[in-house]
Amino acid sequence: MASSSSDQTFDVASLVEDYSLYRISQYVLVVLFIGFFLAPLETGLMTAFKTNRAVAETIPLMPPLAEGFTLDNMTFALDALSGAFFNSLFMAIPATIGSVLFGSMAAYGLTMVDWRGQLGVLVLFLVGIFLPYQAVLVPLARFWNNIFPLASMVEPIFVALPILQSYHANLVPLIITHIAYGIPICTILFRSYYQGLPTSYVEAAKIDGASITKIYRRIILPISKPMFGVVFIYQFTQIYNEFLFAFTLITGSDTPEAVVTLILPAVGASTSGVDFGIRMSAAFLAALPTLIIYVAFAEQFAKGLKTDA
């Protein structure tokens, strides 16, 4: 908006020169920063397709050339991560659905009625967003391991289910944990949306005799479809990328139920150091689901971040 209005002076000739110089320097900056943000990712991606020799001998930014090119790293990484991929999705999808639904419900309950303690409840939700999870890690571990060993309780069910293995039961506490700690952010995201809706929607429906449940199901849910998109994408990315809870609740990166983020720091490591070809392949594969979602729904993702702030 700045530059569009700056061409209103009279000395056109010098201005055009100044202007285009100014313009060019802007674009140079834009491109430089594109380089800044993409170069690390690009070196990673290029390295993923290089043989060990090429990794050592070529500049990381350069693409792999003829004999330096290999898919071995990728296949190795895919093999190492395939089980973890399933675990991650098996964990992240229900956890996302759960926290998004609960968040929407809570926001609906908190915006449609007007009562005194509401602000207090809201503040409690807000603090929940910013909570450093370290403050609940020790209790979490004690709760799921000693007090309420849900994983071993549901294990028989998982044995009986197709596709799933008994060790997938260990992901159930993690799912519930993600739902519980995801509720605050989802609630606030939905609340900011619901507050923008006219109150008359709900009031008109109340006068028409619709119950609270009917208003939610028939009016609020359909109207908030776009917001569901935003929150779902945001929350899925968060949960899929999350590490600390998984790290606390799942015993190690070598267990069969480990999720992608848990395994990744160990892939391609050996006594002789890190094999970066393999590590970068694994990192790329691990990033792929969120990358796809991000590229497809960049706008929703940005919107989620904005509302968050």
Partner: peptide, 20 residues
């Protein structure tokens, strides 16, 4: 009595028509 049991109907300033 809650609104639905009062046998009333209301027209709102912004009409409150459901967009979907």
């Amino acid at each position: 009595r809650v609104p639905q049991n009062r046998d009333i109907a209301m027209v709102f300033q912004d009409y409150a028509l459901y967009p979907h």
